[in-house]
Design a binder for these strands. Sequence first.
DNA 1: TTCCGTTCTGCACGTTTGTGCAAATAGCTT
DNA 2: AAGCTATTTGCACAAACGTGCAGAACGGAA
Lengths: 320, 320
Amino acid sequence: MPRSRHSDALRAAQMYYLQDLTMDAIARELRTSRSTVSRLLSSARDTGLVQVQIRSPLDSAPELERMIREQHNVDVHVVPVLDTLNEAETLDRVAMQAARTIGPLVDSNAIIGIAWGATISAVSRHLTRKITHDSIVVQLNGAGNMQTTGITYASDIMRRFGIAYGARVEQFPVPAFFDHASTKTAMWKERSVRRVLDLQDRMSIAIFGVGSVDSSYPSHVYAGGYLDENDLKLLAGSDVVGDVATVFFRADGSSDGITLNERSTGPSHEQLRQVRRRICVVSGASKIDGLRGALAARLATDLIVDEATARRLVGFGDSA
Amino acid sequence: MPRSRHSDALRAAQMYYLQDLTMDAIARELRTSRSTVSRLLSSARDTGLVQVQIRSPLDSAPELERMIREQHNVDVHVVPVLDTLNEAETLDRVAMQAARTIGPLVDSNAIIGIAWGATISAVSRHLTRKITHDSIVVQLNGAGNMQTTGITYASDIMRRFGIAYGARVEQFPVPAFFDHASTKTAMWKERSVRRVLDLQDRMSIAIFGVGSVDSSYPSHVYAGGYLDENDLKLLAGSDVVGDVATVFFRADGSSDGITLNERSTGPSHEQLRQVRRRICVVSGASKIDGLRGALAARLATDLIVDEATARRLVGFGDSA
DNA sequence: TTCCGTTCTGCACGTTTGTGCAAATAGCTT
DNA sequence: AAGCTATTTGCACAAACGTGCAGAACGGAA
């Protein structure tokens, strides 16, 4: 970047955030206008030059967070939102806070696995930039369905992550579900596919939402033409409560004997649990059953969740 | 710490910094006035709940920083200041930025060694709080002189560090220099003194300025009645250019044969070099000779310095 | 309970900051 | 060099913010 532009942004940021000067004073030192300084600072913020972090000392964390942390053994971030907000607004705010919470966790040489979905799509729209080296963003599960190849939707998400972290993007150009398990077996031996699977094996961070069967704001998976009537009947008959990356589970976290999973392209739960950092983003109380299942399956090490859902999770529906 | 006050500050901080809401919107959600939110946020900032960090990606660091980093093998933070500012203003801004730069380096269980002096005193006035557990702040060198015990001056500095990091404070109630080296030898065997020396041995962070002999803004050491005429003559006759924690060195970093050091209560350079993180704060171009010596002696791992002095250090006195 | 000292709150005002817009500048192409 | 487009700049205005002050709420002590 224009050498002087970037270094001015750095100087301005230091003076503003570290020395408490006003933009006016900075403008004079930099011999430019105050508005330019305002813009320099905002560019410093969203190129990740300035990093704002909120560190709630664990021992003074609110009751709610402590309870979830202990009951489910996850690092939890409760996003404060009025429970009167509608689902879309809540999602937006959860997504924004999630994006900023994820930022500091991403490092150079990371391999970041991303599951597509409404929640993660929202997150991808709020990422702040952070320059890393040799990071890779890898898609966790196929996005094709009967109508489309799903490329644009999923790849937009992937691309945004790639841009934000300066990372290479590896798409996964397969359908979400194969029609026949045998096709999957065959494809999984193809070298082009293996390359992606190998990356998934080595990923250091996974980021995903959860699908919930009874969600009133239904996940793409259940509504978007990924499954046919037969599949849906199958699901209904097997106590499935939700999915992570199109791999289904029951309320107790188990997933053995769910035949649909054999045709799914997402990573098995066992494989997912190998990942050091597994970040689950959940917004909306209707996902509560799916979330419970995912936690029971120990799929997440970190949970970012709106306050109302967090309350439901520990049992009390209203005030603190 | 009224439970609700602190947790409101946390919520407000999350909404403001992580969700980009305005204070007005936050006030409505919290059912309070906007001004209260403003105050909540500022308390969140200076209790360390909100941490602002500036991370200049090393490879895009300005020329100046890179040169110093390579020439002297230190992690350097150049504080941007107009070179037209007077010494006092420069000191203030360097001190503020130093305080905020040090913050993130302090962790729980740290043993922090502090040298008193005009520079560190200024730093101590700008520390932002950060809650740690079981940290200890230990004084590196005595502050007594012929007129006073030096207790109040040095202990104010120490106390401020202690408060900022919630750390226990260990003073060092000895003079800056003994009149007789033999007294030092004797005292160094006393258990009350040993306790402090043992802490110094185990310190994980040391924070100090440098004294420079020719400083036009003379260090306390050279002006404050710590040394008598004889001592000063001794110094003049031995090529001394400066000191760190009242231990002197020459331009090449050597300190052998400087007899005054045998009576000084500060840690030997050898001992200081054992410390993992050694942060040197320097403000004012008149300290350049002292700084050069300190760097030659490899006393610092981190250097925080004003821009004008940094320029002099690498040789070009003016513009970039 | 009343009293008094302390802390907290909201208001009002002045200051600081974000941003649409038009002019200026920089970067390319011909 | 001229011409064209894409950025960048400063201005002016509106929005957002910090803070002194006076009154309210709180927390003991008598």
